[in-house]
Design a protein around this nucleic acid. Structure first.
Lengths: 216, 216
DNA sequence: GGTATAGGACTTACGCTGTAAGGGAAACGA
DNA sequence: TCGTTTCCCTTACAGCGTAAGTCCTATACC
């Protein structure tokens, strides 16, 4: 009796398994041996489908980028860019390991290229110059990645901010850090939720861009 | 004859050597064995001064944060915040490994605390609400880290953009990525330097904040 | 001065990592 | 039928962080 026929390994199956593993157990759990085990295969077999671990990571990132909703080239540019940014933010929260890889390596996968091209096109159609579109795109993406990374690095969940603030308040030297103390106190008392607000910074950038367009 | 008396190892000396090593050869070259070697000592000896490699990294980050110029609490808030942001950006370029550590771990070193406290104080003195100061600070730092990371991840130096653009242009499928093609062409022709502009996004955020203050 | 104590550096060893090198069986094309 | 190719395998290596234990030396005290 032959062993149960297994679906053959493909590059795509490897990449998807890697994303699943990183989603569930974090990037640090993503070793070639671990990944191979989830596919019921030995580590070295993976190298028939990806050249190296770095290439694996590149593929994972591009897969995730592909989940982001592209901005439509026509219609309200502000709405389109906002939608794209929000979608990117949401996707990153679904794959918390992704933003770190995104900012720490060059990514030139086809999904990434399409993503940038669509954004540039949207801003150009809105009437921005190439210079403005280029810099605008950078500013928006800096916010997306910077903000999301900052948010993900905190071990405390937003729901727990008030209780955490109450817990840490007594340890915070009020003399040395008067402003942090005051702010933490407000959070502990429930007068400020302390939640990070992705939209806040995004809207600052969007209205800044809108003003540029008027002045042109 | 006794061996040449060596200056004794201290936590501070270890941290500074680590920063120097990372500056010169990158984070990936910073192993405990390597670091120990630069101090003419064995790897395990370092553990008398730092509890773990993670703690070492925390210490390095806080050392770097200490190099950032604090915003003055009085005077023009916009100028103060701009100065702080620019200083942070400059410091990160001096220590290119730092922003990655900054966004991928919680940092509660004393320099970091002082840095946040001063920023909050500056914005409060400028007349912002606690909510605005909190979110404003987040928006600005998201830009600083997001932008700097993005910039550092590119292997091509700004001076080389035109020649690199000219080199890659023929390989870029104009049909699939029309906007990237057009933009790359402009760079290749010297009509757009393609340089990232840290100040561009920063000013968008600053003027957005300024408008908030007016409306209050 | 002699002795106890503590601290700092050492050696050894373990389990983990990515991956280079090559073997062996099964499937496929001529 | 016989290569040839395709996949997956085993083995091995150098490097990693660090737990555990040893040893030397500089200081503190009687």
């Amino acid at each position: 009796m032959p062993p149960a026929a297994r679906t053959p390994l493909t590059r795509d199956r490897v990449l998807r398994a890697a994303v699943r593993l990183a989603d569930k157990h974090g990037l640090e759990a993503l070793s070639m041996r671990h990944l191979a085990a989830t596919l019921k295969v030995e580590a070295m077999s993976l190298y028939h489908h990806v050249a190296s671990k770095d290439e694996l990571l590149d593929g994972m990132v591009d897969l995730v980028i592909g989940e982001i909703e592209l901005p439509s080239a026509t219609g309200d540019w502000r709405r389109a860019i906002r939608g794209r940014a929000t979608s990117a933010h949401t996707v990153m929260l679904r794959h918390p390991w992704a933003p770190l890889l995104l900012v720490s390596r060059i990514n030139v996968g086809s999904n990434m290229m399409r993503y940038i091209d669509a954004t540039l096109g949207c801003l150009r159609n809105a009437g921005f110059t190439w210079l403005q579109a280029d810099r605008g795109w950078h500013a928006i993406d800096s916010h997306i990645y910077g903000f999301t990374l900052h948010m993900l690095s905190s071990p405390i969940k937003p729901e727990e901010y008030p209780s955490a603030a109450a817990q840490y308040l007594p340890m915070l030297p009020a003399k040395t850090y008067p402003n942090m103390y005051a702010l933490t106190k407000l959070v502990a008392e429930g007068k400020h939720d302390g939640k990070e607000d992705f939209a806040f910074g995004l809207e600052l950038i969007l209205s800044g861009l809108a003003q540029l367009r008027k002045k042109r």
